[in-house]
Design a protein around this nucleic acid. Structure first.
Length: 87
DNA sequence: CGTATGACGTGCA
DNA sequence: GTGCACGCCATAC
């Protein structure tokens, strides 16, 4: 385990509540560097841990950004938990 | 240490 | 609203 920036980002993303989304810059800011938005994206891209809801991380302009399993899958998940807020 | 890469952010025309 | 360019940071070699 490396107590590095990536570890911090992963922990934050992991804490993102369902139905909620955060921007890379926001996660980066919480990680310690509000300018490390790119680094955040790279880290998530290299991380394939299913325990990390990286699909809840979007770009600052509201774009879905990307996903290690395909943008389509990300959009689907967001639509599944973000849109569908019904029990 | 220097270079290259990448799921970004912001500014300007 | 759209397109382009620059900056910023972390990781890998």
């Amino acid at each position: 385990m490396d107590t590095s920036f990536k570890q911090r980002v992963l922990t934050i993303v992991k804490k993102i509540p369902q139905g909620q989304t955060m921007t890379y810059g926001q996660v980066a800011a919480l990680a310690g560097n509000s300018k490390a938005s790119r680094a955040v994206g790279m880290i998530l891209s290299k991380n394939f841990d299913p325990a990390i809801p990286c699909h809840r991380v979007v770009k600052a302009n509201g774009d879905v950004g990307g996903y290690n399993r395909g943008r389509e899958n990300k959009l689907k998940m967001l639509q599944n938990e973000k849109i569908v807020s019904l029990t």
